Amino acid sequence: MKFSEFSPEQWYDLLPYMDTCLIPVSGLTGEEPPHEATERIAGTGDWLQPLEAAFRGRSVTMPANHYVDVTNEDDIRRVSGLCERMRGLGFAFVVVVSGRADWAAVPEDADLLIKPEEAGAEPDPDKLRQAIMALWKREAGAK
């Protein structure tokens, strides 16, 4: 579900079931012309959509972070801080999703970074679902 689909009452009632936070990061730097910005945002949506469809009822997609330079370690630290704050809201799992392959590092406080392995790669919905389920299984096995 998207963050905008909850009323305050629903959120607190559903929180025990909504344990996974999806944070979209488009990776814009502010140097892209409009058509390139559109492509990058759509690319992130391509990687996000299979997860939203598969895990509706267990995941919450938070607002997209567009202007984050994924090749800049300071920006990645800011994403990590955001992940930490999402965990403070009650999410057990925080997953960063991006259409950009060129991340400098995985955000430290993210449980998982979903992204293409190389530029131009298309998402494999089955592989994406398996990555999230593997994350849940690891946590269940650790308890």
Rank of each mutant, 00 (worst) to 15 (best):
F55I: 08
D124M: 03
E5R: 10
R100G: 01
D13A: 15
D109M: 04
P116Y: 01
M133N: 14
C83L: 09
P107V: 11
Q10D: 11
T71R: 11
V95I: 03
R58C: 13
L112I: 12
G88M: 05
A53L: 08
H35Q: 12
C83F: 07
C83G: 09
P116A: 09
R78Q: 08
G81E: 11
E36C: 04
D19Q: 15
R129Q: 15
V79A: 01
D46A: 13
T38N: 11
C83M: 06
L113P: 06
P8V: 03
V97Y: 02
T61V: 08
Q130I: 05
I114F: 02
L15D: 14
D75E: 08
W11H: 01
Y67M: 05
E32M: 05
T20G: 02
P8Y: 05
M18Y: 11
A104R: 09
I114T: 07
E32D: 07
D69S: 10
K143C: 14
V95Y: 02
L89C: 07
T29H: 11
G99Y: 03
T38D: 13
D124E: 03
W47Y: 12
V25Y: 03
V60S: 00
R100E: 09
E108M: 05
Y12T: 14
K137E: 14
K2Y: 13
A92Y: 12
P107W: 07
G27I: 07
D46Q: 15
E9C: 07
I132S: 01
R58F: 09
A37R: 12
L135H: 02
A134M: 08
A92F: 12
F55S: 07
K2H: 15
D75G: 04
R129K: 15
L89M: 13
V70K: 01
A64Q: 04
D46G: 06
P34G: 05
G27W: 00
N65L: 12
A110G: 01
V97F: 01
F6V: 02
Q49R: 07
M86N: 10
T29R: 13
I23F: 04
D111R: 05
F93Q: 08
S7P: 01
E117H: 10
D74W: 09
W47V: 09
N65V: 10
P116R: 02
K137H: 13
M86C: 14
I76W: 02
A37I: 08
Q10V: 00
T38Y: 15
V68H: 03
V94N: 01
